[in-house]
Amino acid sequence: MYGAQSTDEEPERTAFRLAEKRYKLYKSLPPKTRKKPVLNQTDLSDVVDFHAILESVDLIDGIFRLDCPGFDRPVFCFRDRPESNANTSVEAQGSFKSVSASTLLRKLRWGTLGLQFNWSKRNYDFTLPHNKIPEKLCQLAKEMAVPAMPSGEEFQPEAAIVNYFGPSDMLGGHLDDMEADWSKPIVSISLGCKAIFLLGGTSREDVPVSMFLRSGDIVLMAGKARECFHGVPRIFTDDKHAEVSVLLSQFSGEDDCCITDYIKNSRININIRQVN
């Protein structure tokens, strides 16, 4: 799921692919006088910024604020788009090589909570042993899913895929289409560094909308959005754009340095699903 791959089914010049290439982080070789790579200066002026909308009187054309009785957080929707908003040893050549936990953490790309997902068959394997999603995370997902649920129904968190992003990682355009009931939303929680999220249409030829996702933001992939391509072409790890100070303030203990070091250069996405 990570990286950008071009196949016969995904031509290099589809609208979604071009948007990925536009926002992707590129590093050029620095002159001999510089020590750090030179990053591309992408124009971000057309990326939807919901934090700026919150502080403005006027809404951006095509975006409206959803009034959800009993829900005390701001909810924004698109008018012309679908509704959105360690084991420390590895075996090598017959012997065991010691690898630090921090090194393994940097290699981590995804994990699962609840029902296990079979990546090769692209379905949920109900025969595999699994633990339930932690209760506090379930409760959060139920509360946040309210704006996208039919009246009187409660979201049932059954599985979650956790994506881990490093400084140069991206998540290519894809569909989340393995759940039996697409009328239920996917609750997608962002933690850590700010990212650009692309929400396209039912075809890769549809031009996607780009938006910022910050730590604490939640996207509900609901209704027709369940049929739409989406992805993350870039995260921001520089001090100016990462915007992790609020999250870092929650970790001030002497033993928290490994956590804060990770947060400064990473993003975690927890997307919670009702499978049946």
Rank of each mutant, 00 (worst) to 15 (best):
residue 9 E to I: 13
residue 13 R to F: 14
residue 13 R to L: 12
residue 16 F to V: 14
residue 19 A to F: 03
residue 20 E to S: 01
residue 22 R to Y: 14
residue 26 Y to I: 09
residue 27 K to E: 14
residue 29 L to I: 14
residue 32 K to D: 09
residue 33 T to C: 12
residue 37 P to L: 09
residue 40 N to W: 10
residue 41 Q to K: 15
residue 42 T to Q: 13
residue 46 D to Q: 12
residue 49 D to K: 10
residue 62 G to C: 02
residue 68 C to G: 04
residue 74 P to H: 03
residue 78 F to Y: 15
residue 84 S to F: 00
residue 84 S to R: 01
residue 92 A to E: 12
residue 92 A to C: 06
residue 108 L to V: 06
residue 111 G to E: 08
residue 115 L to H: 05
residue 125 D to W: 02
residue 128 L to P: 04
residue 129 P to H: 09
residue 130 H to G: 09
residue 132 K to L: 12
residue 139 Q to F: 03
residue 147 P to T: 05
residue 162 V to H: 02
residue 172 G to K: 11
residue 175 L to D: 09
residue 175 L to K: 15
residue 176 D to L: 04
residue 178 M to E: 10
residue 180 A to P: 01
residue 186 I to R: 04
residue 190 S to D: 04
residue 190 S to H: 08
residue 194 K to D: 05
residue 220 L to C: 07
residue 224 K to Q: 10
residue 229 F to L: 00
residue 230 H to M: 06
residue 239 D to L: 12
residue 245 S to N: 14
residue 248 L to Y: 03
residue 252 S to Y: 08
residue 256 D to F: 04
residue 257 C to S: 15
residue 260 T to I: 03
residue 260 T to W: 03
residue 261 D to C: 00
residue 261 D to M: 01
residue 266 S to R: 01
residue 266 S to C: 06
residue 274 Q to A: 15
residue 275 V to M: 12
